[in-house]
Write a protein that binds this DNA or RNA. Sequence first.
DNA 1: CTCTATTTACTTACTCGTCAGTAAGTTTAG
DNA 2: CTAAACTTACTGACGAGTAAGTAAATAGAG
Lengths: 197, 197
Amino acid sequence: MSKKEQIVKVASKYFSEVGYDKATLDDVAKEVGVSKAAIYYHFKDKFALYEAVLCSRFKDLAQTICEIDVLVPIKALREYVEKFGNFLLENPCFSAIFAREMADGAMNMPQSCTEQMSQILKKLSAILQEGEAQGVFEKENPFMVQLMIVSTLVNYRTTRKLRITVMKNLNEIKNIDAGLKDIIPNLANKIIKALQC
Amino acid sequence: MSKKEQIVKVASKYFSEVGYDKATLDDVAKEVGVSKAAIYYHFKDKFALYEAVLCSRFKDLAQTICEIDVLVPIKALREYVEKFGNFLLENPCFSAIFAREMADGAMNMPQSCTEQMSQILKKLSAILQEGEAQGVFEKENPFMVQLMIVSTLVNYRTTRKLRITVMKNLNEIKNIDAGLKDIIPNLANKIIKALQC
DNA sequence: CTCTATTTACTTACTCGTCAGTAAGTTTAG
DNA sequence: CTAAACTTACTGACGAGTAAGTAAATAGAG
């Protein structure tokens, strides 16, 4: 792996763990084993590094989502939830970054990523419309449906520690906390059920 | 309103708008019309001010949620969603703070607030269990249900600008973006439908 | 083929702004 | 008179960004 790729990888870890602002380039540089100035050799500034972290992954996500075939809406919706979920599983750094972007109104979201997000939502919109046309789904606000899926998945990941703390508070230690992997099909079923006529 | 209360009010605005880290006490002091040191007269440090901002509101939220009568589970679940939603409407600063806390795993969440959250979840758990006992709801993971409700509502607020940008990208300008107020009953219906046997 | 010029990929050692937090002094209310 | 409620003016740390220098690879001219 090139130094540049290593920088992106380590940076994505820090951005994920502590957020854009608290992530310091000194730390990233230290962990990669280069000087901070080396980062500035490869990237214009901190934000450009953040962009590099986000954009490639977003592109991948938009890619797989766009492959979904709309024709059988219920199946397509299940696929949508599963693909999103699996993406988060395969890109563990992403949940936190995504969640933070949603939390602060996508303030740091690079434009290209916003465009990818639009494509993703467009697909969901198409699934819902096809479902409506076929009489299997009711008319829906696609933004809300999107949030019911995405924010649930993303925040399920980020709130793991909180859930464990809360479980202790409620003395429900028996109830072993389910991982995201187990949640995905469950959420898919719930969403489908919620939207069906 | 006392100076101390004014500080809390203005601080909650800044914490909400830019997050804990980017919110500066200099800005808060300036807007209140006191010196920064005045804040330190009333609060031990920045985190103590944040605690003050969070705790009182969380207490209120836990209060109303706890008033819900569990006996008719479907009604209770609708009330749960509505009370949460109305709380966010009445406390506009809260969505962003809440969303950020969820996004970074409740890293800055004061313990007392975590306890309030436990109480809130306990109520939802009770509603779901009563529903299960009465045979109206299926057995559920209360954490996931909680997230489907809370993260959807909270992020619906925080992503308003993003939604508008995305709408422009998709040329769906006709589709006027619905406010949180209109979303609440809709979400309540969806959640109930998703959980019903 | 080899000597020089240039570019690539960095390093060291700094600056500069920002911001939490503080020490010490001052005003105001009871 | 004294305690509460401040203010002014500062410190100290941290972190983004930079200037200037360097070693090694590569290209190009003779």
